[in-house]
């Protein structure tokens, strides 16, 4: 298993409610509190970047960067999943009128799968640049968190 996939899976596992880890290290609310009003404003999506790493920084007071960033990435992944779902819902009626043609929802799903593969490959590259050494895993966690935020903004700025 590639290292960045391990980081992604640890984030997903945390988000899925692996109670022991989540209870021991809850995500500080800084990032969700920052993002909540921004997510209500479709024209302010780029401001989500200002919310990135806020919870990680608070968490780092007592924990390592990689686990803190993975926790925060899990939060951003849940936001990203909501944005994909919003596209599917918004275009469901239109897509139903397109027999034999690819609908918007299907195209968004294909793009999301392609993005996932790209994010893993890109963050593997970032880790390769920082290898071997102690910066390898932190650079991968940092990369995945920022790429997830950028993808959320991209999804929100789609027509």
């Amino acid at each position: 298993m590639c290292a960045i996939r391990a980081i992604a899976l640890s984030a997903a596992a945390l988000m899925a409610g692996h109670a022991v880890m989540a209870d021991i290290i809850p995500l500080p609310p800084d990032t969700p509190l920052c993002a909540a009003p921004v997510l209500q404003d479709v024209d302010a999506s780029a401001a989500l970047r200002d919310c990135a790493l806020l919870s990680t920084r608070a968490c780092e007071a007592e924990n390592g960067f990689v686990i803190c960033a993975s926790l925060e990435t899990a939060y951003w992944e849940s936001v990203m999943a909501s944005e994909v779902t919003a596209h599917l819902r918004a275009h469901a009626a239109y897509d139903a009128r397109l027999p034999g043609l690819q609908g918007v929802g299907s195209a968004v799903m294909d793009a999301q799968a392609a993005w996932q593969a790209y994010a893993e490959a890109q963050c593997d590259l970032v880790m390769a640049i920082n290898s071997p050494g102690s910066g390898e895993m932190p650079s991968g966690a940092y990369c995945l968190l920022h790429m997830t935020v950028d993808r959320i903004i991209e999804l929100r700025e789609m027509p």
């Binding site: 596209h87 275009h91 690819q102 609908g103 918007v104 195209a107 968004v108 294909d110 793009a111 799968a113 392609a114 993005w115 593969a117 790209y118 893993e120 490959a121 890109q122 593997d124 590259l125 390769a128 991209e154 789609m158 027509p159």
Partner: peptide, 24 residues
């Protein structure tokens, strides 16, 4: 690693921009 990233990026951009086109 760069080659894999570049290939994945090309697939992603094609898929994403196609989705943008469909969303119009």
């Amino acid at each position: 690693a760069l080659s894999r990233s570049q290939k994945a990026w090309e697939i992603y951009v094609e898929a994403h921009c196609h989705a943008v086109e469909r969303a119009m």
